[in-house]
Amino acid sequence: MISADLGRQLEAFVAGLVETGRYNSKSEVLREGVRLIQERETKLAALDASIGRGLADADAGRTSDAASVFERLEAKYRAVP
């Protein structure tokens, strides 16, 4: 079991969520908070991995200059009816 000191402001916020019926218990509020942090951390890890792949591509010379990318995109969207 985890015991946490949230401080007055957060404790009051959590208590308010329970009192208004939004959540059934303080534990439920904290579980939801931890789930949200877990989701955010998962997304950040995926972003870090993507950045790593991009940097590896750049280091290996697998890049295109911006002008050619913009030209290709402009041609693509001009062709869209």
Rank of each mutant, 00 (worst) to 15 (best):
R62Y: 01
E32W: 02
F13V: 04
T42D: 06
I2M: 10
S27E: 15
K26H: 05
Y23M: 05
A4P: 00
I51Q: 04
P81W: 01
T63S: 02
G33S: 05
R72M: 11
R40E: 11
I51F: 11
A67H: 06
G33V: 03
M1F: 13
K43L: 15
Q9F: 03
T42C: 08
E19V: 05
R78H: 06
M1D: 11
S68I: 04
R40H: 11
Y77T: 10
A49C: 07
I51C: 04
D57G: 07
S64G: 00
A45M: 10
K43F: 14
R78E: 12
V14D: 05
E32M: 03
E32N: 04
L73Q: 08
I51L: 15
T63V: 10
K26M: 00
S50V: 09
I2N: 14
L47K: 08
L30T: 08
M1L: 13
I51V: 15
V80F: 13
T63C: 07
I37D: 01
A79K: 12
A12C: 05
D48P: 03
V14Y: 03
D57Q: 12
I51M: 10
T63E: 02
A12I: 07
E74W: 04
E19L: 13
G21F: 01
G7T: 09
T63Q: 06
L10E: 05
Y23I: 00
G54R: 07
L6Q: 02
L30Q: 08
Q9R: 13
I2K: 06
D59W: 04
E74H: 08
D5T: 13
A58W: 08
V80W: 03
G54W: 10
P81S: 09
A75R: 15
E74D: 08
D57P: 00
G7M: 07
T42V: 02
V34S: 08
T42M: 13
K26Y: 01
V34T: 05
G52H: 10
E71P: 01
R78P: 01
V18S: 07
G61M: 00
G52D: 13
A45N: 14
A56L: 12
S64I: 00
G61S: 00
A56D: 06
A46T: 03
R53A: 12
D65N: 11
P81K: 08
D5H: 12
V69P: 09
N24W: 01
S68E: 13
E28D: 03
S68M: 01
L47E: 14
T20R: 14
V69E: 06
A12H: 15
N24T: 08
E32K: 02
E39I: 14
S3Y: 09
V34Q: 07
D59R: 12
E28Q: 14
V18Q: 12
R78G: 01
L47N: 07
A67G: 04
L73C: 00
S64Q: 09
F70E: 12
T63H: 02
E74P: 00
G7K: 14
T20M: 07
A45H: 11
L36A: 14
A46L: 06
L10F: 06
P81R: 13
V14T: 08
A58E: 09
K43W: 11
L44Y: 08
S64M: 03
A49M: 11
D48E: 15
